[in-house]
Simulated scan of single mutants.
Amino acid sequence: MNPPKGYPHRDELINGYIKTLALALGSEEEAKLSIYSVSTKYYYAFSCKVNEKLVHKIRSLPNVRWALPDSYLNDVENDYGGEPFVDGKIVPYKEKYHADWLSGHTEMDQLLEN
C-alpha cells in the first residue's frame, strides 16, 4: 500500500487494508477473513488469501502499490514478517514479528556507518 499521510493510528491502517480488500471481494467481512497478516510499523502492507484472478483486480485499487500472488513468494509458509491477523482480528503487536527486518536494517546501518 502507499504510505499513509500523517501518522494514523494502527487500527486506522488496518481498517484501510480491510476496506481496500473489500473493494475486490465485495464485503468487509470477507476481507477480514481473507487477511492473514498485516504490517503497520515499518511498511504498509497486508497478506491475504485470494485467487490469482483477484490479484489483478487488487493491483488496480486506489493506494495499492503492488500485489503479488503467494506463488511468487513463499507460498508454503506464508510468513512475510507481518503481524498475524486471525479470524478478522489483529494479534497484539509483538516486536518478534519484525525481528528479521530490524536485524537486517541494524546490520545495514552499521555497514553504512563504516
Rank of each mutant, 00 (worst) to 15 (best):
Leu23Glu: 14
His105Gln: 12
Glu12Ser: 12
Gly6Ala: 09
His105Ala: 00
Glu83Val: 13
His56Asn: 12
Lys94Phe: 10
Tyr80Arg: 08
Thr20Ala: 00
Ser60Glu: 15
Lys57Phe: 10
Leu54Phe: 04
Ser103Trp: 09
Gly81Ala: 00
Pro8Thr: 00
Asp100Ile: 15
Ile14His: 04
Val76Ile: 14
Asn114Ser: 08
Tyr36Ser: 05
Pro8Leu: 03
Ser37Phe: 00
Glu95Gly: 00
Asn63Arg: 11
Leu61Val: 08
Asn114Lys: 14
Leu33Ser: 15
Gly82Ser: 08
Pro3Ile: 01
Arg59Lys: 13
Ser60Met: 12
Leu33Ala: 14
Val76Leu: 13
Leu111Phe: 11
Arg65Tyr: 14
Ser60Ala: 11
Lys94Pro: 03
Lys19His: 07
Lys96Met: 06
Ile58Arg: 01
Gln110His: 08
Gly88Val: 03
Gly81Arg: 01
Asn2Ala: 14
Ser27Trp: 06
Tyr44Val: 01
Glu95His: 10
Gly6Glu: 10
Glu30Ile: 01
Asp70Tyr: 06
Leu68Ile: 08
Glu52Leu: 02
Ala67Ser: 11
Asn15Trp: 07
Gly88Tyr: 08
Ala99Lys: 11
Glu107Pro: 03
Gly16Arg: 04
Tyr17Glu: 02
Ser27Gln: 09
Ala31Lys: 04
Lys53Ala: 04
Leu73Pro: 03
Asn15Thr: 07
Glu107Phe: 05
Met108Asp: 06
Tyr7Met: 06
Tyr43His: 15
Ser103Ile: 15
Met108Glu: 15
Ile18Trp: 13
Ile58Cys: 04
Thr20Asp: 04
Ile14Met: 02
Ile35Ala: 03
Asp87Leu: 15
Val64Glu: 06
Leu68Trp: 09
Ser34Cys: 06
Ile58Glu: 02
Ser27Cys: 05
Glu95Thr: 13
Asn74Lys: 13
Ser34Gln: 02
Asn2Asp: 14
Leu61Arg: 07
His9Leu: 11
Ile90Lys: 11
Pro8Asp: 05
Gly26Thr: 07
Gly88Ile: 02
Ala24Lys: 05
Val55Met: 03
Ser60Trp: 08
Asp70Trp: 05
Lys89Phe: 03
His105Val: 00
Leu61Asp: 09
Gly81Lys: 10
Tyr36Lys: 12
Pro4Met: 01
Ile90Leu: 10
Asp79Arg: 11
Tyr17Arg: 04
Leu111Lys: 11
Tyr80Asn: 08
Trp101Ala: 05
Ser103Met: 13
Leu33Phe: 13
Ser60Thr: 14
Pro8Phe: 03
Asp109Pro: 05
Ile14Arg: 10
Ser39Lys: 07
Lys19Val: 01
Gly82Met: 00
Ile14Tyr: 09
Gly81Pro: 01
Asp109Lys: 08
Lys96Glu: 15
Asn78Lys: 15
Glu29Gly: 05
Asp11Lys: 12
Tyr43Phe: 14
Ala31Trp: 02
Glu12Gly: 06
Ala99Tyr: 10
Lys5Trp: 11
Ser34Glu: 07
His98Glu: 10
Val50Asp: 00
Asp87Tyr: 13
Gly82Thr: 01
Ile18His: 01
Leu73Tyr: 05
Ala22Pro: 03
Thr40Ser: 03
Tyr36Asn: 13
Lys57Gly: 04
Val86Tyr: 09
Gly26Phe: 02
Tyr17Ala: 00
Ser39Thr: 04
His9Arg: 15
Leu25Ile: 01
Met1Thr: 08
Ile14Thr: 14
Tyr93Trp: 13
Trp101Tyr: 14
Asp79Lys: 11
Val38Leu: 02
His56Ile: 12
